[in-house]
Nucleic acid binder design. Structure first.
Lengths: 239, 239
DNA sequence: AAGTGGTCTAGACCACCGG
DNA sequence: CGGTGGTCTAGACCACTTG
């Protein structure tokens, strides 16, 4: 409603610039097209390159742009919808490794156990459209799954862990989503530099007597839109 | 900074700096404490202030720091868990305004109707611990709720709309979460400058014959962690 | 080799907060 | 007033991609 016309403090240049760029790319560019290079754009708008880059940073965070070193700045494709509900399709996941280690403080909190308790962990990468969109580490206390065979090759052991996990008497799940940045480990798995923004999804699997397992997933925030669909209510956005 | 000498591609300084700072603030600082000012920190680490700020930007995105103009940089409190399931507590919401307008392209897509169709909208701000943590705009096609009284004061009309919405025969909900930045409107409601990162939650309410309503919410990404099904056993087996 | 985005610097000025 | 973070500049060099 009446937005005050009086700006006691004029908006920063990079934000004005972003607004102009949003309009421009919505009206004059299509997915995959290349913007003029940063030096030209900065000159055209009469700002320093650093200021222009601040505006582009915003647009990249919104998923409107993709910047590729050595190539240029492109209009991004719409974000992929990544279903977070239980999925059967195992082939969209690639197992990375697994292990059995004492729980860190964070993991222990998610599992509702004491820090240091031994837990199994399986790390996977989620693939969509040929690219890595997310990582997941599943944690299950050894007490919950005591009979994981130890003599197998790592990939076989990981599969055994997942199979046992899927057989657990899970009664419910609770999830949380927050913003984070990819550290070295995740960044490598996502094939991106460290520091890229990610959506961090924490899932807790509850049984009758408490938490049976927990998973921490990171999804590329530039690429991905996490979807929580109730199976019956899926909407056909495709047309 | 004596780090590993041979990096095929040495990590950027700001990332190394972030790593150092993470360790420092985890070990030597508590919530609410104030870091040394940026100029001192930059000097201490032997980098330009802009580089130090790049590292602080990362930490702010992760919700570890809060920067206050004129005050300093503080260690942030842990993020608030914001339940996203249906809540009864209406008092945590503050109605802003409402209206009846043609659907924009985005809204139309969420509702599964054609752009331009008339829709009711109600805008609210979600308050937690005395601060605005999120905004929400609810959209319901006029066709679904044809009998909203038009002669009332705005606040009464908004309440009437919400009441009618809650009486709709909703059979299921599907949600999506993605990253965005707050534009002028949301930024004002959140009492923050434009451009702050937000988690954008899109909820679609489905009835038997299609989408009855949709809501677009934005939550401060620095502050908030969206939680789904906190109740522990809030299960909904798809059947 | 030429062109792109990514990083980094040194310095300046501004808006805000407190005493 | 002095101190803080926020913005902006002009320039430099690096890493990556393509021809």
């Amino acid at each position: 409603m009446g937005t005050t016309a009086t700006e006691s403090v004029p908006e920063p240049k990079y934000w004005q610039l972003r607004t102009v760029l949003v309009r421009t790319i919505e009206q004059e560019f299509h997915t995959g097209e290349v913007l003029p290079n940063e030096r030209d754009l900065a000159a055209r708008f009469g700002v320093a390159r650093a200021t222009l880059r601040q505006a582009l940073d915003q647009l990249e965070l919104e998923g409107r742009l993709v910047r590729r070193r050595g190539i240029g700045t492109l209009i991004a494709a719409p974000r992929m919808g990544v279903p977070v509900a239980e999925a059967s399709a195992r082939d969209t996941w690639r197992i990375v490794d697994c292990g059995t280690v004492p729980a860190t403080a964070g993991v222990a909190a998610a599992l509702g156990v004491e820090a240091g308790v031994e837990v199994h962990s399986v790390r996977r990468v989620r693939m969509m459209a040929g690219t890595a969109v997310g990582t997941e580490t599943l944690y299950v206390p050894v007490e919950i799954m005591p009979h994981v065979p130890g003599f197998l090759a790592e990939s076989s052991r990981a599969r055994a862990m997942l199979k046992q996990f899927q057989a657990l008497p899970i009664e419910g799940e609770s999830r949380a989503v927050e913003l984070g940045v990819a550290e070295e480990e995740q960044a490598r798995l996502l094939e991106r530099p460290p520091g890229i923004p990610v959506l961090v999804l924490t899932t807790r699997y509850a049984g009758e007597d408490g938490i049976l397992a927990a998973a921490v997933s990171t999804y590329r925030a530039d690429n991905c839109k996490l979807t929580f669909g109730e199976a019956g209510v899926e909407v056909r956005a495709a047309s």
